[in-house]
Amino acid sequence: MTPFGTRISSLAVSVLLLSGCGTKVTRVSHDSTIDLSGEWNDTDSRLVAEEMVKDAVSANWYKAYETQKKIPRVVIGEIRNKSHEHINTETFINDIQRYLVNSGKVEFVANKAERKELRDEKSDQAQNSSVESQQMAGEESGAELMMLGEINSIVDSEGGKSVVFYQINLELVQIESHKKVWLGDKKIKKFVEKSASKL
């Protein structure tokens, strides 16, 4: 290669190297699995919700409703994060609600905070809306079951290696009798390895 050619090649390599320093964004499918840090992510939330909903609606408690041709009304109670990570339980709850509602086997009623907002709206309508369009108070559908749960984790680590074990427990409780009609759990185990050195 001529000296000029060598210079051109060096320049090309430099440009290529420098171009790698900017931010690069690639669109990916919303249900693709991408693990970066090994922490709880949207894939965990989605898979756990999907599997637990399948388990919940195929359990014995649901058969009683099926034989009576009734659709149970469920309200989401507290799903607590007792793990070692900041997990947005709202996303997880939304995933569960979506799968249950889309399955057509369960109806959801608004939770405590949402009900308060809705009642405020009705009270406002009572004063300001026309009689024909007004939504009436005292016509709410009461939930028969409440879903409660928690996310737990155990971490075992040494140096840059760690094993993270998540256990997600959900339960459905009859609001009237306080009977637990379904207990479900899902476990996830991850092995995370961090490199101790880099260039």
């Binding site: 994060n81 007792k82 793990s83 070692h84 990570e85 900041h86 680590s157 040494e158």
Partner: peptide
């Protein structure tokens, strides 16, 4: 309080590794 517990648990993991 649940988020405070997350930090407590993370510090516990850090201290366990520190002792090791």
């Amino acid at each position: 309080y649940d988020d405070a517990r997350v930090e407590i648990r993370q510090a516990e993991i850090f201290l366990r590794e520190q002792r090791r």
